[in-house]
Amino acid sequence: MNQGFHPKVQQVQAALHAGGVDVTVRQIDESTPTAAAAADFLGCDVGAIANSLVFMADDEPILVLTSGAHRVDTAHLAARIGAAKVRRASAEQVASATGQVIGGVAPVGHPTPVRTYLDVALLEYDELWAAAGIPASLFPISYADLLKVTGATEVEVD
């Protein structure tokens, strides 16, 4: 791993390899904090961006890996996962749960495991892209590898 990489990016790379996923994270020269920005940078469909979004399910943080082309219907998601209420986490809750900042949250590399859900709409794409711990980082991954490395529960989010 490039020693010049940000420590958060190195943590994500290590977590991917520890989970048996052989992909290489990329630290880039520009921030891509939104799915649209990442898709523009990569030249791919915005739906192929696997957004890592943190929500509070009742009082527990959860991570939802969703297609950049989708908006999470929180009422629908709550019903699907058996929560009374799901709401977006605050910036402080995101940082506390993942150790990462909004716009750079990765599917892995968190200080403690976060219950994770994977949007089945991402199955449409052979190659997905996700943030790697900071807004100026990305990595390619297949749906199957993303499911494997996160231990996520598959769900429809909208």
Rank of each mutant, 00 (worst) to 15 (best):
K148Q: 15
E30K: 14
H6C: 04
S31C: 03
S52R: 14
V108W: 04
A121D: 09
Q13R: 08
A83N: 09
A39F: 10
Y125W: 14
V114F: 05
D145Y: 03
V72G: 04
Q13V: 04
T34K: 02
R26P: 01
I49F: 11
F41G: 02
V155P: 03
I141R: 02
A39G: 08
G19H: 04
H17Y: 03
D58L: 05
S90Y: 10
T112A: 13
A50P: 00
F5N: 14
G20I: 07
V25A: 08
S96D: 15
G103V: 04
I141V: 12
A75M: 06
P140A: 10
H17P: 01
D22A: 10
V54N: 09
A38G: 15
R88Q: 15
Q100W: 13
A37Y: 00
A97R: 15
A39P: 07
A35N: 03
E60P: 02
H76T: 12
G99L: 13
T32Y: 13
T32D: 07
E124G: 10
A152L: 06
E154A: 12
A50R: 02
L65R: 15
F5V: 01
F41Q: 11
V155T: 09
L53I: 14
N2V: 06
Y143G: 01
V64H: 09
T98I: 03
G47N: 10
L147F: 14
L123Y: 03
A78Q: 11
D126S: 08
D22C: 01
W129H: 15
L138A: 10
F139Q: 01
H17L: 12
G43E: 00
V94S: 10
P61Y: 06
T32N: 08
A83R: 00
W129S: 08
G20F: 08
R26H: 05
I62A: 06
